[in-house]
Simulated scan of single mutants.
Amino acid sequence: MLISTNAIVISKLKYGDNDLIVKCYTQDYGTQSFLLRGVLKSKKGKVQAAYFQMLSQLQIVMDYKNNRSLQHIREVKLNHLYSSLHSNVVKSAVAMFLSEILSGALQEEEPNETLYSYIETTLLWFDSYTEYANFHLLFLLNLTKYLGFYPEVAHLEYEYFNLQDGKFELKAIDRHTISGDNVTVLKRLLETTFDILTEVKISSKQRQSFLNVLLLYYELHLGNFKKPKSLEILHQVFN
């Protein structure tokens, strides 16, 4: 059955000499993996390897079968042509990092149009802005809304946050409780939207510390989640 849907590239893996296995988050069918035969050899045809850069936003026509683990793409075209996301070194490092997060966190083969729209619109924001040092922090924090473990915002006046339970507390009662600068950054981001993100000032040290907190938060709430291999690269480009 031929299906047309929007898709965002979240991982790719070379398979053999000339093939690629690409994982996409699609608007209508959730997470889907595709086998692209001969795509690394052929310079002709409707499916080219250049389309499948990390976080590229595509419109694809796929030959869909619900009992097949690897689907086939018949046609592909860009939905959005990024102006800087793939050409700016720092943005490319962020894109690689976020694609790893999404690849690990998005497993369901079920549509979630609000989640798709969130990823689509925030990536367009990221592509268009020149001040983006805190983008990945707010992106990951807000993503937890759609994954089911967004922090409870009751008792924002409390000075401790329990990562295991996802709520603010009056005192530390769990080993996965944070305080100090990490709680200050968390509160600031909980009250921030992308429209005013450029006004949020966080030091490099605070940013790195809070990112590690976010990754632990993901590990505690997503069973098979692993720290991205590109984390070290991300730290290097921001330092």
Rank of each mutant, 00 (worst) to 15 (best):
A154I: 13
K77V: 06
L115Q: 07
G148Q: 01
D63W: 09
H155P: 11
Y160R: 14
Y82N: 10
E110N: 08
S99D: 02
N67H: 03
T114C: 13
L106I: 13
A93T: 14
E157P: 13
H72A: 13
E131K: 12
Q53M: 05
S103C: 12
A133M: 09
M54H: 05
S117W: 07
T121M: 12
E108K: 08
L58H: 04
L55P: 13
F126A: 09
G104R: 01
N66V: 04
E120I: 03
L98S: 05
V76D: 10
K43T: 01
F161R: 08
V94G: 04
N142F: 13
D127C: 13
D165F: 11
N67F: 06
S84R: 03
K44P: 01
A49V: 00
Y132P: 10
V94Q: 04
N79R: 14
I119E: 09
A133Q: 14
H80G: 09
V61D: 12
I60A: 06
I73S: 07
D63Q: 10
K43P: 00
G166V: 01
A133T: 14
A105Q: 00
P111T: 07
Q57M: 15
T114I: 10
P111F: 01
K167G: 10
A49Q: 01
M62R: 09
L85D: 00
F149M: 00
Y158C: 12
Q57F: 06
E110D: 06
F126H: 11
A105Y: 03
V61E: 13
S84M: 00
E108Y: 10
F139R: 06
S87M: 11
I173Y: 09
N142V: 04
D174H: 15
P151R: 01
A95C: 04
S56F: 04
S92V: 12
E108F: 03
L140K: 09
K65G: 03
N162Q: 06
L170E: 11
L58M: 03
N142M: 11
L115H: 02
A154Y: 08
L98D: 03
H136R: 00
L156V: 00
D127I: 09
N162H: 06
V94E: 04
L78H: 07
E159S: 14
Y129N: 15
K145N: 06
E113Y: 04
E131M: 15
T144D: 10
Y150T: 04
S92Y: 05
L106P: 10
F135R: 03
H155D: 05
L102T: 04
F97K: 06
L58D: 08
L78N: 11
V94N: 05
L170C: 05
E113A: 14
K77E: 15
Q107G: 10
L102F: 07
M96T: 07
L85I: 08
E75T: 14
A172Q: 14
L78V: 08
N112D: 07
L124Y: 05
L55T: 02
Y51I: 02
K145H: 12
H176W: 14
F135D: 09
E157Q: 05
Q71P: 07
L81N: 10
L55E: 10
Y129G: 03
A49Y: 08
V76N: 08
K91T: 01
L143Q: 11
R74D: 15
Q164V: 11
Y64K: 04
E109A: 13
T114K: 12
F168H: 13
Y132A: 02
H72Q: 14
Q57K: 00
K44S: 06
D63Y: 13
V76C: 13
Y116F: 15
G148W: 00
V153N: 04
K145Y: 05
S103L: 09
L58F: 03
